[in-house]
Amino acid sequence: MSAAEFGQQFINALSLGSIYALVAIGLAMVFSILRLINFAHGETLMIGAVAGVVLADRGLPWLIWLPLAVLITVGAGWLMERVAYRPMRGAPDVTLLLTSLGVSIALQNGALLTLGSQPRPFPTPAVLGGQIPLAGGVQISRVNLVTIAIAIVLMIALTWFVTRTQTGIAMRATAENAMAARLMGINTNTVIIAAFLIGAALAGVAGFLWGSRVGRVEYDMGFIPVLKAFVATVIGGFGSIPGAVLGAYILGFGEIFLVALLPDYLTSYRDAFIFVALILILLIRPQGILGSTEPEKI
C-alpha cells in the first residue's frame, strides 16, 4: 500500500467509523437506560434517508429537506418508544430484544410497501459530490470529509449535553441507577424519551450521510449499519457512549483495512470476520473496552 493509498483509506475508514459512531451512540444510550438492544434503530436511519428521497422528489432544496428529514426521523423515534417500547418497560431483556426485531421488520416492510423493492437513487447534494485532489495523487471524496466533520461536531455537542445540561446529567444518572435517579426526582420517562429522540436525530443524520455515501436508498438499508453499530457497542462496552464511539472507529478501520489487506478471495468474507471477532469479544471480554458493566454471565 502506497502512502497515497494509505491516506485515502485512512480518510475512508474515519468516515465509515463516523457513520457507525452516529448510529452506535443511539443504541448505546437506549441500552444504558433500558437494557434494550434496539434493532429497529437501523430503521430510524432508513426512515431518515427515505424521508430525504421523498422530500427531495417534491423539489425541495437540500438545506430544507435535510432538517425536515431529521425531524421526521426524530418523530419516528418518539413514536417507536411510545407505541412499542413503553408498554414493555421492565420486561426481560430478551423480550425487549425480540420486540425490537418485530418493530424493525414492521418498519422495513412498511418501507417496502411504499418504496418498492427497487433501490432509489439518493439525492446527494451537489456540494457533497466529487473529489478533492491533494498532493501526491491522493483524492479525498467530499462526502467523506463532510461525514467526518459532521460527526465531530455532533459528538462535541453530545458531550456538552451529557456533561453540562440537567437532562444530560440526569440521563447518565438514570443509566447508572434508575431507582436512585427516581429517588432524586428525575422523571425517568423524560430521560428515556430524550435518549430516543437524540438517538433518532443522530441516526437521521447518519441516514443522510450513508445515503450520500452509497448513493441509493433501499427499504432494508438500515440493517447493515445497525448490525455494525451494534458490534461497535459490543467492542466498546454495552451501554458506554464513549465506548460505542471508540468501537465504531475501531470497526471502521478494521473493516477498511481488512478489505485492503486481505487476499481478494477472502474479502467477501469480511462480515464473517467481523462477527467472529464479535463472538470472541463477547467470550473474552463481554464488558468491552470501556464498559464497566459486570458481564451478564451465569
Binding site: 444518572a173 447508572e176 426526582g185
Partner: peptide
C-alpha cells in the same frame, strides 16, 4: 451514589 458523576453533579441531581 452515582459513581461516575462528580460530587457536584450528585448534589445538583438532588436539587432536580
Amino acid at each position: 451514589i452515582f459513581g461516575s458523576l462528580s460530587v457536584r453533579d450528585n448534589l445538583m441531581l438532588g436539587a432536580t
